[in-house]
Nucleic acid binder design. Structure first.
Length: 881
RNA sequence: GGGGGAUUAGCUCAGUUGGGAGAGCACCAGGCUGGCAGUCUGGGUGUCAAGGGUUCGAAUCCCUUAUCCUCCA
């Protein structure tokens, strides 16, 4: 066997060889960034190695290195590039995977990139060059000329824009041609097409390395301008190269997956065979994604990233039910995943227990959902007249209740029903279109002018709140009726890390502009959003000199709340023995919100303990220090980091006194006493183990106290007492009320003894449709509907064949209530009587056969109506005939 | 970001064209039993998520907000 000439290599060795190879070529080894893109809300997850370097190509601001190499953890499971549906069907796609890459930012280009890639594959990996094919973008002549020097032309395949032209990531930005390297796994795995070659969807040619050459900058109008800092961006899936190096049939039969498959065999009692392959693959793929997502701080949720995680966990669990596992089991796969990766990603070991408990909770919830799904299915299906389930019903199950399609299909088959999937797809498509259209509409932004290229805004707001700068772009936001200004230098802090964007004023020669929000984009450009308060957009000149001034009041409030947030975090950790963990925060000018994971029950005592601790620290007037240092150094010094990793730049560390420090990009007060005072307004549980504290500081706290004290003063004034005696007075009053109520009840009971005699006095016998009926009337002013109803009930239990008609005057209106005993109600209905009577009284009403009510405004007619009731009722019954 | 659904007693949930707020469990009181387990009798403990509107009358219909579930992006 010739295959054995190449030595099998495990995945750790491949990672190491790759990074070392490029390090020798003067690349800086950059650690993998988090799966959650740092400062990039446009992207759901890190989906490629280049994500953390994106802005290095787009801008011309200084960068720490021009060559980099990394092994990046990636997730493609939601948003723009999702592979979720492909998992299990192919042996080469994953939701979570690792991508090896080398990058050039305005340094080397196609020639070196291609030659080094070839050298690595053939010399380091020792792959037989005869088996390698490549593809290139058909219009990229540079690339084909380089390849021609390396391998015969019949193994160099041109492909179109769809396959071999990359980007831009959004509508604008860096993009360029790419070239891909494939391995031919032999004619056996080919499709039947004799013309089979790279680009074909069958299994013969496996693409494993994509070299992208960002060289253009796409403009909003679609034109391609040359990129000044053009470069190289390559990506090789670790799972694919491992498969090749280990001679495996698919990515799943490598050392990255085998231990997981073995464990799953043990749990399910089934073997990994052709029959169970799909389920096994989906489960082991998804558990990796789950472990890494939770490890990077994502929790199951009903929107955004958390929602993607929830779907992944549920899909995996559902596959489990197909191989007859019906209890929580995914958590048992966490340990094997951690064992595979703990060398490369040591933080997994630390969060392992938490990952397990989050997964268990989610599995339990999903089991509940499946149970309720079955209930909904059987109730709805009874309404059907034939055995076809309409698409609308299918869609409602799926869309509203989240019942998985597969489950619907299973249940339907079990009960012998036929789902109309075609109609279902129509509904789904309609929803997709609607969502897409709406989201495009929301983001309309019309440029008035825009300097090119647009560079990262220089942020000066840590030290200054006022800045002389130049205006380099102006946009109109027609949907929000607002404008956006971009400056070359800005003191405005843009919204990030939970802290809201600064507000303030930008003034030019003939205009001034109120900034109500500041935002930042992935390129680091700060947008000042707001309205013109004098002048209009036509008065703004390109490159005009302006003065940008941040609102001090706004900034100070925000700073106080941000530092207060850190102190709350510190106190929570102290009280919980470091078990509390920040899950998110909002730092605005009026209030702050702090969400955290806390595995213990929290009661009011703990909340007030936290509040007094925080205020003690505020009063102790500790200095708040800001330092810049490397990430490594910060962690060594014990700073708390919410985001696990970030590329080699310096990070900011905020320290309070000598007891707490935290990585943070936000703005803070200089000493804790500037916070003034902190009041916790609410403490609530917002989910499984997830708690929320809302608090106010500075004048907002003062106003809170002031308002409460005013209420207290009003209350004491009303009760003619002092705050100290307030509780005593209230208790006394309560007792008095109780006594009074008892008295009233006694009186009512006495009075009600008279009611039957009153009613009897007013009883008249009439004949309706040859049936003897007693008409009983009464007027009890001041009694409510409810009380009249009770009287009517009492009367109805004593008199047979009765029509009871009661009235009263409440708030100047005549209210009417009618009760008719069951046998009589078949002849004449209470609602008819009430409608008729209330009409006479200038009102209306209605109800059911035995009971009805209504009201009218002409109270002077009540007595007449009552004394005439038996006649009126006779009339009604005759009309009905 | 855009849809669909939900929110009713401590918990799980019913509530029909708008017409008197309900069930089971839990809870409280009393009885039976030597004690426990148990059981019988009695008791509803409620801002129908919040606010506004329509109506003689709203848990129910309309609008706004909050929270949760779910689908799509």
């Amino acid at each position: 066997m010739k295959k054995l000439e190449r030595k099998s290599m495990n995945s750790s060795q491949i990672r190491k060889k790759y990074l070392e190879f490029f390090e020798k070529k003067n690349h800086t080894i950059v650690p993998s960034s988090s799966l959650i893109p740092f400062d990039d809300p446009s992207l759901l997850f890190t989906s490629a190695g280049m994500v953390q370097f994106k802005k290095f190509w787009a801008t011309e601001t200084p960068i720490p290195y021009t060559r980099a190499t990394s092994c990046q953890k990636c997730l493609r499971a939601g948003g723009k590039d999702s592979d979720l549906e492909k998992i299990g069907l192919s042996g080469r796609h994953h939701t979570f995977f690792e991508m090896l890459g080398n990058f050039s930012f305005g340094d080397y280009f196609k020639e070196e990139a291609i030659n080094w890639a070839w050298e690595f594959v053939t010399c380091e990996m020792k792959i037989d060059p005869q088996k390698l094919w490549v593809s290139y973008y058909s219009e990229d002549h540079e690339t084909i000329n380089i390849w021609k020097k390396i391998l015969p032309e019949n193994r160099i395949i041109p492909l179109g824009k769809k396959d071999n032209f990359w980007g831009p990531a959004g509508d604008t930005g860096p993009c360029g041609p790419c070239t891909e390297i494939y391995i031919d796994s032999g004619i056996d795995s080919s499709c039947s097409n004799p013309d089979c070659k790279p680009g074909c969807d069958c299994n013969r040619f496996l693409e494993f390395w994509n070299l992208v050459f960002p060289q253009y900058n796409q403009q909003a109008d679609g034109t391609l301008l040359p990129l000044k800092r053009r470069g190289v961006d390559t990506g090789m899936g670790l799972e694919r190269i491992a498969r090749i190096m280990q001679g495996a049939g698919s990515n799943y039969e490598t050392d990255l997956f085998i231990p997981l498959i073995r464990k799953l065999e043990e749990i399910s009692g089934l073997k990994y065979t052709e029959k169970t392959m799909k389920e096994f693959r989906i489960i082991v793929d998804h558990i990796r994604a789950t472990v890494f997502l939770i490890g990077d701080g994502v929790y199951p949720d009903n929107e955004g990233r958390g929602y993607v995680l929830r779907r992944i966990i549920r899909r995996a669990f559902f596959q489990g039910t197909k191989i007859e596992i019906n209890q929580p089991f995914l958590l048992r796969l966490v340990s094997p995943v951690v064992s595979i990766f703990h060398d490369v990603y040591p933080n997994l070991e630390k969060t392992k227990e938490e990952i397990e408990s989050v997964i268990l909770e989610e599995e339990k919830k999903f089991i509940d959902l499946l149970a309720s799904a079955k209930k909904i299915f059987s109730t709805d299906i009874e309404k059907l007249k034939n055995n076809i389930i309409p698409g609308e019903m299918l869609f409602r199950w799926y869309d509203t209740y989240g019942i998985p399609r597969d489950l619907i299909a299973e249940l339907a088959e079990e009960k012998g029903f036929e789902p109309d999937w075609q109609e279902f797809e129509k509904h789904l498509k309609q929803q997709q279109q609607q969502a897409r259209q709406k989201s495009i509409f929301e983001q309309r932004r019309e440029p008035i002018f825009e300097m090119s290229p647009l560079n990262e805004t220089i942020f000066t707001g840590y030290s200054n709140t006022e800045e002389q700068s130049n205006i380099i772009a102006l946009y109109h936001l027609p949907d929000r009726k607002m404008w956006e200004i971009v400056l070359d230098k800005s003191p405005f802090y843009p919204e990030k890390g939970g802290q809201v964007g600064d507000r303030g004023i930008i003034s030019g020669k003939n205009w001034s502009f109120e900034v109500i929000d500041s935002q930042i984009d992935p390129r680091g450009i700060i947008y000042h959003i707001g309205r013109f308060i004098s002048g209009t957009f036509q008065d703004v000149e390109e490159s005009e000199k302006v003065v940008a001034r941040v609102s001090m009041e706004h900034r100070l409030d925000v700073c106080a709340n941000h530092t207060a947030t850190h102190i709350i975090h510190y106190c929570l950790r102290k009280i919980s023995d470091n078990r509390a963990k920040q899950a998110g925060s909002y730092v605005g000018p009026e209030r702050l919100r702090f969400d955290f994971i806390y595995p213990l029950p929290v009661n009011q005592d703990i909340v007030s303990l936290i509040e007094s601790e925080v205020n003690r620290i505020i009063l102790e007037n500790h200095p708040v220090k800001v330092e810049e240092m490397t990430y490594q150094k910060a962690i060594e010094k014990g700073a708390i980091a919410l985001f696990t990793e970030k590329y080699g730049e310096k990070v900011r560390v905020i320290s309070i006194g000598d007891f707490h420090s935290e990585l943070c990009g936000g703005t803070h007060v200089r000493r804790t006493s500037e916070i003034g005072i902190l009041k916790i307004l609410s403490f609530s549980s917002i989910g499984e183990n997830l708690k929320r504290i809302e608090a106010v500081t500075r004048q907002h706290a003062y106003h809170w106290f002031k308002q409460k004290i005013e209420i207290l003063q009003q209350a004491t004034a009303q009760l003619k007492t002092t705050p100290e005696n307030l509780l005593f007075s209230i208790n006394k009053m309560k007792k008095q009320i109780q006594e009074l109520e008892n008295k009233i009840n006694t009186l009512m009971e006495k009075a009600s003894m008279d009611i039957p005699s009153t009613l009897k006095k007013n009883k008249k016998e009439i004949s309706v449709k040859n049936k003897n009926v007693s008409v009983v009337t009464g007027r009890f002013d001041g009694l409510s509907f409810e009380q009249l109803g009770k009287i009517a009930d009492g009367a109805a239990s004593e008199i047979t064949n009765a029509i009871i008609l009661l009235t009263s005057v409440v708030n100047g209106r005549a209210i009417v209530l009618c009760k008719i005993t069951p046998d009589v109600s078949k002849i004449i209905q209470a609602s008819h009587v009430v409608k008729h009577i209330t009409k006479i009284l200038g009102g209306s009403g209605g109800g059911k056969a035995e009971f009805a009510q209504g009201s009218g405004k002409e109270i002077e007619k009540i007595d007449e109506v009552i004394s005439n009731a038996h006649n009126i009722i006779k009339e009604i019954s005759e009309q009905l005939n």
